[in-house]
Nucleic acid binder design. Sequence first.
DNA 1: AAAATATCCAACCGCTTCCCA
DNA 2: ATGGGAAGCGGTTGGATATTT
Length: 216
Amino acid sequence: MGRSPCCEKAHTNKGAWTKEEDERLIAHIQAYGEGCWRSLPKAAGLLRCGKSCRLRWINYLRPDLKRGNFTSEEDDLIITLHSLLGNKWSRMARKLPGRTDNEIKNHWNTHIRRKLLSRGIDPSTHRPIGDSLKEKKPKSPTLISWDATSTDQQEQKKLKVFGSLESNNRKKIFPFQEINNNPKVNLELQISPPNTQNPHDPSLAVSDDDFLDLKI
DNA sequence: AAAATATCCAACCGCTTCCCA
DNA sequence: ATGGGAAGCGGTTGGATATTT
């Protein structure tokens, strides 16, 4: 007794979308808006599962998508966000307007991971590979550091970021100390895990999104 | 020029979370 | 409080394209 499938799979198309399918989906969403993905395919005259329609729209057809190559600033932001969030691609996408979670995930796996590895940095821990092997458990607060030395400009600049939360008095404090103005190169982050729950007053809970409301 | 291999990324799958009756 | 359906999310796959041999 499994769960009922999200859609009738017997008569649905799979694989790459055709131009006509794209046009149908765009026309339908322009007319009726997003949402109700389960019923959308039938209403739009598409032989697709609702999930597939949603994905196609979000990852490819949405008019606000940026597309094209990632800038080095976007790369840096992704690295920073990944060090804070891990593989929370959709959360990262919220901080990168015009980019989708899928796009960021693919870019991470194909470009950024390799870039970090070539610099001797473990992409999952953001620590030098040697350190990652030596230390099994990071102490709290977690220190994340990496060397992103720019070889072309021979810049040696550092940004230190200190984040902290104060839940007792309804204040969130993020004293970010920028030692230099260029976050592209040697970057060290010191973070503490967000205090997402206060047993005494749930209204004081701070979301990870609040914690990440950084100006990087 | 052809075959083999590597890379990229759109799309799928299945699990989790959210929401509402 | 709870169960079920819908949406969201992240890991993975597979096909198209690029590069190398």
